[in-house]
């Protein structure tokens, strides 16, 4: 079964979506990410969708699910690189990406995540649980 690779960087998980996802691939990604947040105690999830030409209600729901489930496990989700045409279309479609933050690019997304979880924790790899915002 094909899968989207998830990279671990300290307290963060990174995913780059490089192709238009088949539904199965998208639901697998959702399950894998949630599992990995749980297993690693990651505090942030960054999803790069700059290669996605369209986000329909199905994909939007997947992103929202990742965000809200990660949140339950105390991790923030940032979606980065959304193409302008996709952003315009989502607004007209009426789909809000609830539960996820958005940023222009990976760099800005990382900054945002660090801000959200607090700088002390972002730089300290061994110290998972006791930080507060």
């Amino acid at each position: 079964m094909e899968r989207i690779p998830i990279l671990r960087m300290g307290h963060f998980l990174l995913v780059t979506i490089q192709i238009d996802l088949y539904d199965r691939l998208a639901t697998n990604l959702e399950a894998d990410l949630v599992q990995m947040v749980n297993r690693t105690g990651a505090r942030g999830v960054l999803i790069d969708i700059s290669a996605l030409n369209i986000v329909d209600s199905f994909m939007g729901r997947i992103l929202g699910n990742i965000g809200s489930m990660s949140k339950i496990m105390d991790a923030e989700t940032v979606v980065v690189g959304m193409q302008p045409a996709v952003a315009i279309t989502l607004i007209e479609l009426g789909l809000e990406l609830k539960g996820v933050h958005t940023a222009l690019n990976v760099e800005k997304g990382m900054e945002l995540l660090k801000q959200k979880i607090g700088p002390a924790e972002a730089s300290d790899e061994d110290d998972d649980e006791d930080g507060t915002e």
């Binding site: 030409n53 369209i54 329909d56 209600s57 279309t89 007209e92 479609l93």
Partner: peptide, 16 residues
């Protein structure tokens, strides 16, 4: 590109 994206997104919703 914007109209393309709107059209394809609409198409995706209907096909689903």
């Amino acid at each position: 590109i914007v109209n393309q994206t709107k059209l394809i997104t609409a198409a995706s919703e209907l096909v689903r």
